[in-house]
């Protein structure tokens, strides 16, 4: 029971970090970054190249910066759309994802990408069950990051600017808030968060990432839909629901495996997502937006 809870919490924190990345970008630009997974893989790949030479921590920092930079490049591309239509920009991220994924697949090939993180495959014994240190770190770092992001939103001037722009872009411009600056910084934060999420995804018990791992980030999308695409709190809650739901499903799998199969756990988030979309399209905490049909 405790094991399931811890598992749920730690995968929740990974989902939450990834979901938060999506949400920050969406809040700042109203674009759903469907290239998030590729940015994540890019950052982790850079770490895998640099860590052996520079050590894990310098490598991680540079990898996170590269992830953020890659995200900014995506911002420039989406910003070039003349009509500034957010749906078109979202579709563009699909094209960008195809590009980055192709290039990364070529570079990575069949190999597996390791970050060389310092937690390795060590495990701690907690309450009688063994728990991977890396997952514990995911929980701690994830929670800290989430706290930091929330603090930025609530207390800093940037947070005020971001939230103001999300609510009313025109008035924010009138108040001197540069939409461009808000947009770029949202992507920077989003890209950085994606890489951090990737570091933990690559860690034990997973065995690194491969060229197909970019789609793992897509599993965070149910989290943002359930929570509400423009709500940071929703992203965290969504991450909790998805992570714990998955952990519970995994726990129940031995009983249900004959009927539902092994991969049912990864489908559960999407079923929940569809259910939420039907009942409350704007998610649990999202603001109701008049959608252009």
């Amino acid at each position: 029971m405790l094991e399931t809870l811890l598992q749920g919490l730690s995968s929740s924190s990974i989902y939450a970090v990834l979901a938060l990345g999506f949400v920050v970008i969406y809040k700042g630009t109203k674009v759903v970054n469907l290239a998030h997974g590729s940015v994540m893989l890019l950052g982790v790949y850079v770490i895998s190249l640099l860590a052996p030479r520079l050590g894990f921590w310098p490598g991680a920092v540079i990898g996170i910066l590269v992830g953020a930079a890659g995200a900014v490049v995506i911002q420039f591309m989406t910003n070039a759309v003349r009509s500034k239509d957010h749906l078109v920009m979202t579709i563009m991220t699909i094209g960008i994802n195809v590009m980055i994924a192709a290039e990364l697949t070529h570079e990575i090939g069949d190999a597996t990408v390791f970050t060389g993180d310092p937690w390795g495959n060590r495990s701690l014994s907690i309450g009688g069950s063994s728990f991977p240190v890396s997952r514990l770190m995911a929980l701690i770092v994830g929670s800290v990051l989430i706290g930091v992001i929330f603090a930025i939103f609530r207390f800093t001037q940037f947070g005020v600017k971001l939230r103001a722009s999300a609510v009313d872009a025109e008035t924010s411009s009138l108040l001197g808030i540069s939409q461009r600056s808000v947009s770029i910084w949202s992507w920077v934060i989003g890209g950085g968060l994606a890489t951090v999420g990737g570091i933990f995804l690559a860690a034990f018990p997973a065995n690194g990432l491969d060229s197909g791992s970019a789609t793992l980030a897509m599993s965070a999308i149910p989290a943002i839909i359930i929570g509400g695409m423009d709500s940071a709190g929703g992203a965290v809650l969504g991450g909790l629901i998805v992570g714990c739901g998955e952990a519970v499903a995994r726990r129940l799998i031995p009983e249900l495996a004959p009927v539902l199969g092994d991969s049912f756990a990864s489908v559960v988030p999407f079923i929940l997502m569809l259910a939420v979309l039907l009942v409350r399209p704007s998610g649990l905490f999202g603001s109701k937006v008049v959608q252009r049909v």
Partner: peptide
């Protein structure tokens, strides 16, 4: 065009952006 979701204080801070 008040930012209704945000507090009075935050609206003023936005004005000082």
């Amino acid at each position: 065009r008040i930012l209704g979701e945000m507090t009075v204080l935050e609206n003023l801070r936005a004005g000082g952006a």
